[in-house]
């Protein structure tokens, strides 16, 4: 069977009449990415997976071709990445800072500084969150999702990519599905109270730790300008007078600039001092304008009624 857009369709039989297709392709590392998430050569990229697939089912399905080391769904990966990225960012910032400092220091051989750094007590470990007890459950994802499957060796990948001759049945893992799934999910969402307490307490501890850390780390102070390495000063908007934000040079919010109002509440508009009916020509003008407006309204209404007439509205019965 031919390929579809460079993918090998792997037919799976759901029942005698329903055949589902998974599209498979060898994973190619992207050139831009600095770090390869997936080892090229033994990673299979899959598209259009069933919505209720589990990792276990994936490895069961590919078992005839070889052992699956790990697999990951793109939807989850995105979230995870986002999480990790932010963590990585903050960490790499630190590291980068250190490295930069280190590099600059190296040339001048300032050993003591480095040592002092090393001697510093280790930063406190973030408290661990005690997770809520969740039973193994299927995650139902959007239809047509993608995933990466990493085999132990590259030969399995080749075997997996050989177009199969006939559809294979879909394996099932132990996670409940259907009615049982919903029953388990229902119970799982209502954990025992002590578990909730443990989770909440530990999560709050973590939050407080993070807040404290952020406070320590933050180099931005109110009223101090943030100047980046190119010498640009960060300008931020906020509040009426630009005072509600923490870092950067503040300017007033756009709304304040536009309206001059600090709050969203409507104030009574000041009456204009200028008299409108002082000169005779003003009066005449006003009268004329009123008449013109009258005529305009008249014409408009006429047009509207004309339009209604076109829709045969005036045949009452």
């Amino acid at each position: 069977m031919s390929t579809v857009g460079g993918f090998v369709p792997l037919p799976i039989s759901y029942s005698s009449s329903a055949i589902h297709y998974i599209y498979a392709r060898a994973h190619e590392g992207s050139k831009k990415a600095t770090k390869q998430l997936w080892p090229v050569g033994r990673t299979l990229f899959l598209a259009n997976l069933p919505p209720d697939v589990t990792e276990r089912e994936l490895s069961l399905f590919f078992k005839p071709h070889g052992t699956v080391e790990r697999s990951a769904f793109s939807e989850d990966a995105l979230e995870k990445e986002a999480l990790e990225e932010s963590d990585v960012d903050s960490e790499s910032d630190e590291e980068g800072d250190m490295e930069a400092e280190g590099a600059s220091a190296e040339g001048e051989a300032t050993q003591p500084k480095k040592r002092r750094r090393l001697n510093k007590p280790k930063p406190p470990q973030p408290p661990q969150v005690i997770p809520l007890p969740l039973k193994p459950l299927r995650t139902l994802r959007h239809t047509g999702q993608t995933a990466h499957v990493v085999f132990l060796d590259s030969s399995s990948l080749e075997r997996a990519l050989v177009p199969p001759t006939k559809p294979r049945p879909w394996p099932t893992s132990d996670e409940p599905s259907g009615l049982a799934h919903y029953l388990t999910l229902y119970d799982s969402l209502r954990p025992p109270l002590d578990a909730v307490r443990a989770y909440a307490d530990s999560a709050m501890e973590l939050y407080e730790f993070e807040v404290a850390k952020a406070k320590q780390k933050s180099k931005y102070r109110k009223g101090e300008a943030i100047v980046d390495e190119d010498g640009f000063t960060l300008v931020t908007r906020g509040g009426a007078y630009g005072q509600t934000v923490g870092g950067g040079v503040a300017v007033a919010s756009k709304k304040f600039q536009r309206t001059g109002e600090t709050s969203s509440r409507n104030r009574k508009k000041k009456e204009s001092k200028e008299k409108t009916e002082f000169y005779a020509f003003q009066k005449a003008e006003k009268q004329r304008n009123d008449l013109m407006k009258l005529k305009q309204n008249w014409e408009e209404t006429k047009a509207k009624v004309e339009k209604l007439k076109a829709s045969r509205r005036f045949k009452p019965y």
């Binding site: 329903a18 589902h20 297709y21 599905s177």
Partner: peptide, 18 residues
């Protein structure tokens, strides 16, 4: 659109209900 497969999935997701 693979209608049969989608219906098959509905049947599997709703096992015991459908």
């Amino acid at each position: 659109l693979n209608q049969a497969a989608v219906l098959g999935e509905i049947e599997r997701l709703g096992r015991g209900i459908v």
